[in-house]
């Protein structure tokens, strides 16, 4: 399971590449790897959201 996960997901030329790979993981019964990958994406997005809020708050204090 980790081999597929470690193989990497990002291919900039195809915006749906990551989605295809997640579907392929499910086709292979690799549900756990999908969970890990989605958790990682969510964590990144939340960090980005906090950065945006702090940046906006900086704008008004400055």
């Amino acid at each position: 399971m980790s081999i597929v996960y470690e193989a990497g997901f990002v291919a900039e030329s195809d915006p749906l590449s990551e989605d295809r790979q997640l579907i392929e993981l499910l086709d292979n019964g690799n549900v756990e790897a999908v969970s890990q990958r989605l958790a990682e994406i969510t964590r990144r997005e939340r960090e980005q959201a906090v950065r945006e809020i702090l940046s906006a708050a900086g704008d008004i204090s400055g």
Binding site: L16, D19, R20, L22, I23, T42, E45, A49
Partner: peptide, 21 residues
């Protein structure tokens, strides 16, 4: 707001998977 954003993102993701499928 955080909850609404999370739902919107999850739905967008679902729509992308639906497109591939």
């Amino acid at each position: 707001e955080a909850r609404a954003q999370a739902t919107a993102k999850a739905l967008r993701r679902l729509a992308r998977w639906a497109a591939v499928l």
